[in-house]
């Protein structure tokens, strides 16, 4: 029996205080009860141990999602309020110019961020995989930005891109008088500086993912193709890149969800400006919920963000967990 190891002391000790008036058979019954209880406990113990975490997740993730979901159809303004208003907040949300700017920026930022990170990541991975001397030095250099806070990244790029003291000034001092690079101050171009800083931070990580994928490819296949006369270009286009499909998928999922969540970087780099030019859904949600006293609209924007992420993540997780099963 397992109880012996679970409770090395006498299993009856916890009833002994009250056991005095009990006669022999009742004591026996109690003992049997205790045994089944402990056996039960043994079978339920794993679930019991897991339950605090699971309850926390249910409450703080799914309960909160439900709560925010309800707020999005309520008349909450400065504080949460429970008056039901239907889809009014969503209608207001989609008629707001700020929100359409945020969505347009997310589209620009998301697409460029994903595409450029993938191209740079794949390119660097392929090049690094060509028996490069000094790979051990280069790889950590490509990857270290991932360890930094977006606030640090934002600070560094904010001043480096500042026309007054940064890159533009450097070029002028180096004698290129006509050089102009004031994207960070320009309403039209500021969003691209966010892309630049975000790509700087994440592309090395994408490189590492592709590199792992490349290293997993069986060389015999490549050699066989070479013997058949395939050129390097064909080798990569026809064999290597198709075989990297899982890495492409993972990179896409990770980058897409990072893009939708992007908040800190914008705050540190442009603070949503100039004007509202670099507003993203995450910054929109924050300002409407907490500074503009439009909590209902803020909640509805959060729900839209969750839906965007869910539409990418759920199919992915589903297929991943499925594959495991078989």
């Amino acid at each position: 029996m397992l109880i012996a190891t679970l409770f090395s002391s006498d299993p009856l000790s916890f009833v002994s205080g009250k056991a005095k008036p009990l006669c022999q058979w009742r004591l026996k019954l109690l003992f049997e009860n205790a045994v089944t209880m402990i056996e039960r406990l043994q079978t339920y113990l794993p679930r019991l141990v897991l339950s605090p975490s699971f309850v926390l997740i249910l409450l703080f993730v799914y309960g909160f999602i439900a709560f925010t979901g309800y707020l999005s159809v309520s008349d909450s303004r400065m504080l949460p309020s429970l008056g039901f208003v239907g889809l009014e907040n969503y209608e207001k949300l989609f008629s707001l110019r700020h929100w359409s700017i945020a969505l347009k920026n997310l589209a620009i930022f998301g697409i460029l961020y994903i595409v450029i990170c993938t191209v740079i990541g794949l390119g660097l991975a392929i090049l690094l995989d060509m028996k490069i001397r000094g790979e051990g030095v280069l790889r950590p250099i490509y990857l270290y930005p991932m360890a930094l806070s977006f606030i640090v990244t934002g600070t560094a790029w904010k001043w480096f891109l500042d026309p007054g003291i940064g890159l533009e000034n450097v070029m002028h001092l180096w004698g290129w008088e006509s050089f102009s690079f004031n994207w960070i101050k320009s309403r039209e171009m500021a969003i691209y500086t966010v892309v630049l800083a975000a790509v700087w931070q994440s592309s090395g990580f994408v490189m590492a993912m592709f590199l792992a994928g490349l290293r997993g490819i069986d060389n015999e296949i490549l050699k066989a193709a070479q013997i058949d006369g395939a050129s390097n270009w064909q080798l990569y286009r026809r064999i290597v890149i198709p075989m990297l499909r899982p890495a492409f998928l993972s990179a896409f999922v990770v980058l897409a969800h990072l893009a939708i969540k992007a908040y800190d970087l914008v705050i540190a780099l442009t603070n949503g400006g100039p004007g509202r030019a670099t507003e993203l859904p995450a910054t929109f949600m924050y300002s409407y919920s907490f500074t503009r006293n439009q909590m209902g609209i803020g909640a509805s924007s959060a729900v839209i963000m969750l839906m965007m992420i869910a539409s990418i993540i759920i199919p992915y997780l589903y297929s991943e967990l499925r594959e495991k099963k078989t």
Partner: peptide, 25 residues
């Protein structure tokens, strides 16, 4: 599997969705 799936999905949620209730709690 369901328990794990629910925990896994929680890694990806945009934290904006929990900010308001979290402040309350």
């Amino acid at each position: 599997r369901v328990v794990f799936g629910l925990m896994l999905f929680s890694c990806f949620i945009p934290f904006q969705i929990v900010l308001i209730p979290m402040a309350r709690i």
